[in-house]
Measured scan of single mutants.
Amino acid sequence: GPIITTQVTIPKDLAGSIIGKGGQRIKQIRHESGASIKIDEPLEGSEDRIITITGTQDQIQNAQYLLQNSVKQY
């Protein structure tokens, strides 16, 4: 399918649970989903961080599912 980009906003407090120790968790999510995932640095004074996910519809759905699971375990 076509490559698309979607953005998800997360509270910055949850960023740690998604990134994992030394970036292990986010690497695993990238690997498992096949999507490209970029977590922006939090904006000055903002409570949120923006996650940019790029890939096919399937890859993005996979990545979103894995991201949600990471947050739930936290």
Rank of each mutant, 00 (worst) to 15 (best):
A15F: 09
L14H: 12
Q59C: 12
Q24D: 15
T5P: 02
P42I: 13
G22F: 11
G45V: 07
R25N: 05
E44D: 04
Q68E: 13
H31S: 12
A63P: 00
L66H: 03
A35H: 00
E41I: 08
D48A: 05
T9A: 11
G20H: 05
N62G: 12
I29F: 05
I37V: 07
T52W: 10
G55L: 00
I50A: 12
Y74P: 15
I60Q: 05
G23V: 06
V8D: 15
D48I: 03
A35Q: 00
V8E: 14
G16T: 14
S17F: 12
Q64Y: 02
D40M: 05
Q59T: 04
I50P: 06
G55D: 00
I10L: 15
I60L: 09
N62K: 09
K72V: 06
I18S: 06
I53Q: 00
G22M: 14
I19F: 07
K72I: 01
I37Y: 01
I60K: 01
K27F: 08
R25Y: 04
Q61D: 15
G34S: 05
D13F: 04
I51L: 08
P2R: 10
I19G: 05
Q59R: 08
E41M: 09
T52I: 13
A35P: 00
Q61V: 11
K12N: 06
A35N: 00
R49Q: 10
V8K: 13
G45E: 14
Q59L: 01
S33I: 06
I10R: 01
Y74M: 14
E44F: 05
A15G: 04
I51W: 05
T52L: 13
N62Y: 03
S33Q: 01
K38A: 12
I4K: 02
S70V: 06
S33D: 01
A35E: 00
T56I: 03
K12L: 04
Q7H: 15
Q24V: 10
P2Y: 04
I26H: 04
Q64R: 11
L43G: 09
E32L: 03
V71T: 08
I39L: 10
D40F: 03
G20S: 12
G45M: 11
Q68R: 08
Q7R: 10
I50H: 13
I10H: 01
Y74H: 15
T52E: 14
N69C: 14
G16I: 15
V8Q: 06
L43S: 11
Q57R: 09
N69Q: 08
I39D: 04
Q68I: 03
G16D: 13
Q61P: 01
G1S: 02
Q7L: 02
D48M: 07
P11M: 04
T52Q: 15
G23W: 07
Q73N: 13
L66G: 04
Q64V: 02
I29L: 10
I19K: 05
D58E: 11
T54R: 12
D58V: 09
P11S: 09
K12G: 04
G22Y: 11
A15H: 05
E32M: 15
A35K: 00
K12P: 15
G34K: 06
A15M: 14
K21W: 03
Q59E: 13
T54S: 13
V8C: 03
V71R: 10
R30S: 13
Y65W: 06
A63E: 00
G55K: 00
I51F: 15
Q73M: 13
N69E: 13
G45Y: 12
L67P: 00
G1T: 10
V8P: 00
P42S: 04
L43D: 14
S33R: 01
K72D: 15
S46H: 12
G23A: 13
E44A: 10
I51C: 14
H31Q: 10
T5G: 00
R25V: 05
Q73I: 02
T9W: 01
H31G: 12
V8S: 02
Y74D: 13
K27P: 06
I39E: 10
D58Y: 07
I51Y: 11
L14G: 12
S46V: 09
P11Y: 02
V71C: 10
A63S: 04
P42V: 06
K27D: 15
Q24A: 12
K38T: 07
D58W: 04
G22E: 14
T52V: 06
G20E: 12
E32R: 05
I51H: 01
R30W: 06
T56E: 15
I19Y: 08
Q57G: 09
E44C: 06
Q57C: 02
K27L: 14
Q61H: 11
V8N: 03
I53C: 03
I37F: 06
S70Y: 05
P11I: 04
Q57D: 08
E41L: 08
D40V: 06
A35M: 00
K12R: 11
Q64L: 01
N62E: 15
T9H: 02
Q61S: 12
Q57S: 09
T54Y: 08
Q7G: 05
I51V: 14
D40W: 03
Q57M: 04
S70E: 13
Q61Y: 10
T54M: 07
I29C: 09
R49F: 03
Q59G: 03
R49Y: 14
S17P: 05
P42K: 13
E41F: 06
L67Q: 01
T6P: 00
P2K: 10
Q7P: 02
P11V: 03
Q73W: 15
S17Q: 14
P11K: 05
A15I: 02
K38Q: 06
Q73F: 12
T56G: 07
T54D: 09
P2S: 15
G45N: 04
Q73K: 09
S36G: 11
V71Q: 12
I53N: 01
I51G: 03
T56L: 07
V71S: 08
L43W: 04
Q61R: 11
G22P: 15
L67A: 01
Q57N: 12
L43V: 13
I53P: 00
G23T: 07
Q7I: 02
I29K: 02
S17N: 09
A35W: 00
I4H: 07
P2G: 14
I18C: 02
Q59D: 02
D40A: 08
K38S: 10
S46T: 07
Q64A: 02
T5A: 03
T54K: 11
K21H: 07
R49E: 05
D40K: 07
Q28D: 13
K38H: 12
H31I: 07
K12Q: 11
S70F: 07
E41V: 07
P2H: 07
I53M: 07
G34F: 02
